[in-house]
Computed example of a mutant assay.
Amino acid sequence: MVVFRSVLFNVLSVGLTLLMGVGALPIRWFAHRRALEYARLWARLVLWLFRKVCGVTVQITGLEHVPASGAALIASQHQSAFDTLIWMLLLPRPCYVMKGELRRIPLLGPMLVLTGMMPIERAAGAKAMRLLLAETDKAVRAGRQIVIFPEGTRTLPGEHVPLKPGIAAMSSHAGLPVIPVATNSGLFWGRNAFFKRSGVLHVAIGPAIGVTRRPELLARIESSWRDLEKSWHRQA
């Protein structure tokens, strides 16, 4: 059953992405303001397939910690492609910090730029940090909710890696508290994994962490993540 569900989901989701990528061409040419709305529809359909085909139940807790509107800074764990989709449904105007090379993906890349995402060339060093802060200013002025994955890459469930300093720089620069988010999405949609597994996928959102110095902020994010992980273990 796992093999059948995984094959079906992968075929349908890739087909949907290609179809909507081609369908996005008129938006890219004539209706830029519809780009985010169109991207949200794509994310909604992919996640619908994930739930229905793969037998996954998504349980979200702590959504009350996310402001209903206006700028926000969300620091999420990153285990799966799921994490890059779910916030399109949970936030009114999401804005992801993403790897700059994603802009070069055919069909998808140009749409990411039009939706106002924040592509950063991490290899650019200090220049990348200046660009990140400039993009943060732009997102805050537009009242968008910024999603960043401080681990810098997808990790395995339970894996701990040093957090990148960009989140602290953004919080201090913009004066925004950080909303920590933990997930176990990698158990069901693993990093580079063909097979998708059924079960209860948790997205746990914690109370905002106030603006503070970098070492303390990074430590508090990691501590919040551990506490949030315990919350769903207690429910098991």
Rank of each mutant, 00 (worst) to 15 (best):
L19H: 03
E64I: 02
N184A: 02
M1I: 08
L156W: 12
H173M: 02
A24K: 03
Q77M: 14
R40S: 01
L90N: 08
L36W: 03
I209A: 05
R93W: 04
W189A: 06
P157H: 07
R191W: 10
E151C: 00
P119S: 12
K99S: 10
W42F: 11
V211E: 03
V161W: 10
R40P: 02
E64G: 10
L102C: 09
L49G: 15
V203C: 01
G186S: 08
I86E: 01
I209N: 01
S80W: 10
V181C: 01
V2F: 05
R40F: 02
N192R: 15
S172T: 12
F9E: 08
Q145H: 05
R197P: 02
E101H: 11
W87D: 04
V58C: 00
L63Q: 14
V140N: 02
I148S: 01
V178G: 02
L47T: 04
L19Q: 02
A43D: 11
E159K: 11
L187H: 14
H32A: 13
E101N: 13
M111P: 03
E222C: 07
A182L: 01
D227R: 15
A169P: 05
M98I: 15
S69H: 15
K138G: 00
E37W: 07
G21A: 12
L163V: 12
T153E: 09
F195K: 07
L16A: 03
L49K: 01
T61M: 06
W29D: 04
H233M: 13
L187W: 02
G210K: 13
V97H: 00
M118E: 01
L19G: 11
I205D: 00
G21H: 12
I120R: 11
V22P: 04
F4C: 08
V140H: 03
F4P: 00
I205W: 00
A124N: 10
P215E: 10
R34V: 00
E216W: 00
L102P: 08
R141Y: 03
E222V: 06
L41P: 02
R103D: 07
L47H: 07
A169T: 05
T155M: 10
R154T: 09
W29F: 10
E121F: 11
W29V: 05
T61N: 11
E151V: 03
R214Y: 05
L107D: 10
T153Y: 12
K164W: 04
L176D: 07
Q77T: 11
P67L: 07
V14D: 04
S69W: 08
S198P: 13
V140C: 03
H32D: 07
V7A: 14
E121M: 09
E64T: 09
V113E: 14
P157E: 05
A35G: 09
L8T: 15
E135G: 04
W48V: 04
T155L: 08
W232G: 03
G175K: 07
T212D: 10
A123K: 14
R226T: 13
P119W: 13
T57E: 15
G166L: 11
V53H: 09
P67F: 03
A124E: 14
K196S: 02
L73P: 01
L16Q: 08
M170V: 13
E121W: 14
M20L: 15
G21T: 09
P67Q: 09
P162H: 11
S76R: 11
K230Y: 06
F194K: 04
L18D: 06
S198A: 15
L41H: 13
S13D: 10
P180C: 04
T17V: 05
W87E: 05
L187G: 02
E222W: 04
K230W: 08
V3I: 14
S171W: 01
